[in-house]
Design a protein around this nucleic acid. Structure first.
Length: 577
RNA sequence: GCGCCCGUAGCUCAGCUGGAUAGAGUACCAGACUACGAAUCUGGGAGUCGGGGGUUCGAAUCCCUCCGGGCGCGCCA
């Protein structure tokens, strides 16, 4: 609808230019049209006459008058008016609103979705937590946001794939393996202590049990004196322990350990996500990039382009030339590649697949990496604009007004699974989505669990269930439904509801353009409000036949919009509660 | 110290590329079912949009500055 009105305005302005009332350079790039906030100011409004006034040399109201006079006549508008300092307000014709009912029912689950016209191919990478334990409440936000974003972009007509990047190499992987191995040895009654800095969580013991199941005793080392070490420094202890573990087990058995542990961790994460209703289309492993030699190639290409130099024994990337604060190391003095190096290779891989836009959803604690990653893309000859890095602020949990902090290493965190089990999947997802991503999120457990009106999830779901309940009444009472005359819908509460429904396609477009799933959540609450208000004001089943049929169609279309919207944010639409 | 995010009603937050009288929810107060689900609805009070400058017809929105909170600033992952 917004686009239709923009189109009318553009036509009018062109005509004014043709009539030489306006000069061509006064034409705005885009015509701003917005849904009016207040009734009495029409359904849509534009301030275009005011913004063009300067360039055109006309007074705003005078220009508005000329634009209004040259609007092509259309049947979906009842009238237009000029108001205030120079706004043009558009009033929709009633039949344009009542006609919407038929449209919604016909389109059904397609209503609101864009027809693929300017569709882009988009890759959304999200969560991508390191495979060293269960997902916690912080990851949950990225999961809810990323999944809703992908669904939203699909609804807006784009082709979207989702991906999880698994960092399955490096030191943290080694520490994890050693942690599980020591727990495994303890299961064999060997006296070994798990050192500080190793993963302490209960799930490590679980993983050790599975390792025992997979490998039985083949990884046992009886000489515990070699392993039970404690150096002055935590990191030094771990480094030495890793070195000895690799030596004791030998390359093959260590790889076996690694594969078992990795598979277990990935499976744990995958099942946590599945439990949350999130499935990635693809799981991409760092070891793949490394094995194929992509990292070496990426580094070599940067070197050939002259963006690398040696200093202090390490190899540096000149990211400061591309706006980063300083240069970054890609190869350490000891010859090891940094994580940044393999991340470059991975992102180049994504950029060179068949996508128009590559989106990363990152936690706020990674925002410092945005500049260097974009720099690396630019230096490698890719357009950094195609890499969209969205930052989701951190989430903390509040229970009994107390903040619960999260740390994977210490094992003292609230897992995503616990959260879901406690609040339910729908409430958890809705709460995560309800804040825009740049806003810090304090997740109030008590509120999310409450099954009352102050919990917005239930408010929206209740509207859906209520409509389904009315439909059941129709069947139980054996009421006939015939094709309805929707022009019978003329009460304010009915027209308000229709106005709200008519905005759904615009809301999807807007939310998708801005990468803001929360707009959908807020919109759904508004739909529910309008519905509940209508429901309390008007009777549905006790009307005479024609009106009853019209109203039943109306609430069916409301139900459809609620269901479509809830689907976008990944929340269920219950038929009863 | 530098960078990013945030600061809007008692509390939790919306406010779309600057637009007309700043909006919801919650809490509080007062009402509404012998009638389709009261997990609902109706009404009420409540804000110098963190402070101060600037840009302009017009600023919660853009720019500068200060204050306050979060996060990040490794040859860690």
């Amino acid at each position: 609808m917004k686009a239709k009105i923009q189109n009318l305005l553009a036509q009018s302005i062109e005509r004014l230019v043709a009539l030489e009332e306006l000069s061509a350079d006064a034409i705005p790039k885009t015509v701003p049209v917005e849904a009016s906030r207040r009734s009495g100011q029409g359904d849509y409004a534009t301030g275009v006459a005011m913004s063009m006034a300067r360039a055109s040399g006309m007074k705003p109201r005078e220009l508005a008058d000329r634009i209004q006079a040259n609007l092509p006549p259309v049947d979906f508008l009842e009238r237009t008016e000029i108001a205030g300092p120079g706004f043009i307000n558009f009033f929709l014709a009633k039949q344009a609103l009542t006609g919407l009912v038929g449209e919604v029912l016909e389109c059904a689950d397609k209503f609101g979705r864009a027809t693929p016209g300017s569709a882009s191919r988009i890759l959304v990478e999200f969560v991508s937590a390191n495979p060293n334990g269960p997902l916690h409440v912080g990851h949950g936000r990225g999961a809810a946001f990323g999944d809703a974003l992908a669904r939203l972009l699909r609804a807006a007509g784009h082709h979207v794939d989702t991906e999880y990047y698994v960092n399955d190499l490096g030191r943290q992987m080694d520490i994890l393996c050693v942690s599980v191995w020591i727990r495994y040895l303890q299961l064999h009654d060997l006296k070994v202590k798990l050192p500080d800095g190793a993963y302490q969580g209960e799930y490590i013991i679980e993983s050790a049990r599975k390792l025992e199941h997979e490998e039985s005793a083949s990884l046992v080392c009886a000489d515990t004196a070699q392993i039970d070490i404690q150096l002055d420094e935590k990191d030094a202890t771990l480094t030495e322990l890793i070195r000895r573990t690799k030596k004791i087990l030998g390359e093959d058995r260590f790889l076996q350990l690694r594969d078992d542990v990795l598979a277990d961790m990935v499976e744990m994460i995958r099942s946590d996500l599945a439990h949350f209703g999130v499935q990635h289309d693809r799981w991409f492993f760092e070891s793949q990039v490394s094995k194929l030699g992509d990292v070496d190639r990426a580094i070599k290409a940067l070197r050939e382009r002259g963006f690398l130099y040696e200093a202090d024994g390490a190899t540096w990337f000149r990211s400061s030339e591309f706006g980063d604060e300083k240069d970054r190391v890609v190869v350490r003095a000891n010859g090891d590649l940094t994580y940044f190096a393999s991340d470059i290779a991975y992102h180049l891989d994504k950029m060179r697949r068949d996508y128009d836009i590559v989106i990363n959803v990152w936690g706020a604690d990674h925002h410092g990496y945005i500049a260097r990653m974009k720099a690396a893309m630019a230096a490698s000859g890719e357009n950094p604009e195609r890499l969209e890095i969205l930052v989701v602020q951190l989430a903390t949990l509040i229970r009994d007004s107390v903040k619960i902090s999260m740390s994977t290493r210490s094992g003292e965190f609230v897992s995503l699974k616990e959260l879901i089990d406690e609040t339910g999947r729908d409430a958890a997802r809705f709460f995560y989505i309800l804040r825009k991503s740049e806003q810090h999120l304090d997740f109030d457990l008590e509120l999310a669990k409450r099954q009352t009106g102050d919990n917005p999830v239930y408010y929206v779901q209740y509207a859906h269930a209520r409509i389904c309940s009315v439909a059941r009444q129709v069947r139980e009472r054996g009421l006939k439904r015939t094709s309805a005359d929707h022009s019978l819908l003329k009460q304010d509460s009915e027209l308000d509801l229709l106005r709200r429904l008519s905005r759904f396609p615009d809301v999807i477009q807007s939310a998708a353009n801005d990468y803001e799933p929360h707009q959908i959540a807020y919109y759904l609450r508004d739909v529910a409000t309008d519905f509940h208000s209508f429901y309390n004001k008007e009777r549905i089943l006790d009307c005479e036949d024609a009106l009853r049929c019209a109203r039943l169609d109306l609430i069916d279309s409301v139900r459809q919009v609620l269901a479509n919207g809830l689907d976008i944010i990944g929340v269920s639409a219950p038929t009863s509660m």
